[in-house]
Each structure stands twice: as structure tokens, then as C-alpha cells.
Design a binder for these strands. Structure first.
Length: 276
DNA sequence: CGGACGGCCTGGGAGC
DNA sequence: TGCTCCCAGGCCGTCC
């Protein structure tokens, strides 16, 4: 389940490994995963183009290619985009292989096939159906306690659902949402509008902190996630609530509770995050 | 309009 | 052991 820190870590890997390399050949093993956009054929549209850069927006990876093309990639839950040697064993569920000018390969793998990649013209990025809807980047300067206050004002929705809404805050997922709410001492089911200014400030700080730590730890490898070189992250060792229901709170020892909010499992400390 | 929920997929683990 | 069932959750479409 790659969220902002995982996607950012993959971006960093690919930038250091594949930036400046040319796509010599593209092999599409699962056509529905590789969407050609306005082009006739995915592979032939990309062949011969150089990877100029790798960018990220929310949980989307955007490979900047020559000729004004962008490859928009989403890993969803189990997607991997990994730079590897050509002799590396072919993983099951490998869907797209990019042969690179240095002799190595970029392989897109996705067990559940929720993820995928799409060729988009640079001038169409701003109006792209998915990218255009994304909200503010939580690690950018635009994300302030005041912005969080605007998001929650008069909102009856539960605070966790709100910070998971990609059209409001781009890049939060279930793991970092639970961790941020724990760090801020706020119950995930709290009605958003009831948060005090002090709580909004705490939540703002906590969101930035858990995301920054996630990046510093190169992502959370709880199940499937690996970085752009196939390496596991270390942030799973720092999780305080996610995946720890019924275990003791690291702060007070109380057994962590579990409930469903907006269809997602939420783990929290009934004592430290008790308020309403 | 916004919130809730099912569908998309497969593998892993629990329970029998 | 092997079968069934449930869960994992990002995003989209549908419904109310």
C-alpha cells in the first residue's frame, strides 16, 4: 500500500537509477495495465524516448519523457516499479518491462492489477481526470494549520475520512492517517468540525512529521511495498498503531482499539485518543 | 453535493 | 491437508 512516503521513495530510487536513460524496448505482458492514451500503441509510443525526470503528485508517479510525453503511474496497493538487471528472475505478475540503454530494466509488477500506467501529453496533465482533482501536497508550504481549518470547517465527516480524501490532501493513506491521528492524540472518528485550533495545529504537525519520517525510513514495508531498487523500507519498525490492534499503546499501555471508518480499518488508543 | 458503499483483484491467514 | 471465507485498501462509479 504505497502512500506518499513510499511513492516518494520509489521516485528517488528511479531518479538516481534511470534518469537520463533511454527506453530501448518496451514489452507489454498485460495490455490492460499499460494504457496508451491518445496513442495507437503503448510500446511503440515510448520506444526511443529518454527518461528526463521522475516526479510525484500525491500517490502518482510521473515519468517525464522526451517529446512532451509523461508516463503517469499509480501503484495502488501492490504495484512495484523496480530497476533491475536483465538476468534477475522474472517475478510473477510482471506486466510491463522497459529495456534501458544501460542494459538494465525497469519492471512494473502488480499482484492485484489495481495499478497501472498511462501515457499522457504534457499539456493534458493539468486536466487529467485523476491528477486535476488532487488536493494540496501535505509537505508543501501550502499545507498550513489554517488550510486544515478550512478543510474541517462545518464538516460533519469524520476527521480520518477527511484527511484520506485525495481531493483535499494528496498522498495520505490508511497507515499514515492512523499514525498521524495517534501522534496528535485525536480519535479517528471525531467529527471534523469539532476540532479545536490547538488540535488542528497538532494534527497539522503530526501529518507532516509521520510523512517526513516515512520518507526518511524509505517507506513502510508492511506487506508488498519495496522501493525502486526492490529494497524494503524500515518505517514498519516505527509504527505506533497501524497493524497493532489489541496490543499495548506505546505511551500508556492500554490495549489499542480497532474500528471501521469509511470502510477502512482504523487502529487507535482509546485512552490517548479518547476525546469524544 | 457529499457521504456511503460495492467492485476491481490476488494472496495469505484463520478456522474448520 | 485442504477447503472456504475473510481481509488487506486506493480509487472510481453508483446510489441515495
Amino acid at each position: 500500500m504505497p502512500e506518499l512516503p513510499e511513492v516518494e521513495t520509489v521516485r528517488q530510487s528511479l531518479e538516481s537509477k534511470a534518469r537520463g536513460l533511454t527506453i530501448v524496448e518496451v514489452k507489454v505482458l498485460t495490455p490492460q495495465v499499460a494504457r496508451a492514451g491518445v496513442f495507437e500503441d503503448f510500446a511503440s509510443a515510448l520506444q526511443g524516448l529518454k527518461f528526463l525526470d521522475f516526479e510525484r503528485r500525491g500517490k502518482y508517479l510521473i515519468a517525464v519523457l522526451e517529446k512532451g510525453l509523461r508516463l503517469v503511474v499509480h501503484l495502488r496497493m501492490t504495484g512495484r516499479w523496480v530497476y533491475c538487471a536483465p538476468e534477475a528472475p522474472l517475478a510473477k505478475h510482471t506486466h510491463v518491462i522497459f529495456k534501458l540503454s544501460d542494459g538494465n530494466e525497469l519492471r512494473f509488477t502488480d499482484v492485484r492489477r489495481f495499478g497501472g500506467m498511462e501515457i499522457v501529453l504534457a499539456e493534458d496533465l493539468d486536466t487529467h481526470s485523476a491528477l486535476a482533482k488532487l488536493g494540496v501536497e501535505p509537505l508543501s508550504e501550502s499545507f498550513t494549520p489554517e488550510y486544515l481549518g478550512e478543510l474541517t470547517r462545518n464538516k460533519k465527516a469524520k476527521i480520518k475520512s477527511l484527511i484520506l480524501d485525495q481531493s483535499r490532501l494528496a498522498g495520505m493513506g490508511n497507515i499514515y492517517a492512523d499514525e498521524a491521528l495517534f501522534l496528535a492524540g485525536i480519535h479517528p472518528g471525531r467529527e471534523a468540525a469539532t476540532l479545536s485550533e490547538e488540535e488542528l495545529r497538532r494534527l497539522h504537525t503530526a501529518i507532516r512529521q509521520v510523512l517526513a519520517e516515512g520518507i526518511a525510513n524509505r517507506g513502510t514495508s508492511f506487506r508488498d511495498y519495496v522501493d525502486g531498487e526492490g529494497q524494503q523500507g524500515q518505517n514498519q519498525l516505527s509504527l505506533k498503531v497501524y497493524g497493532r490492534s489489541n496490543q499495548g499503546c506505546v505511551t500508556c499501555g492500554t490495549a489499542l482499539g480497532k474500528l471501521r471508518i469509511g470502510g477502512r480499518t482504523s487502529v487507535y488508543c482509546p485512552n490517548c485518543q479518547g476525546g469524544r
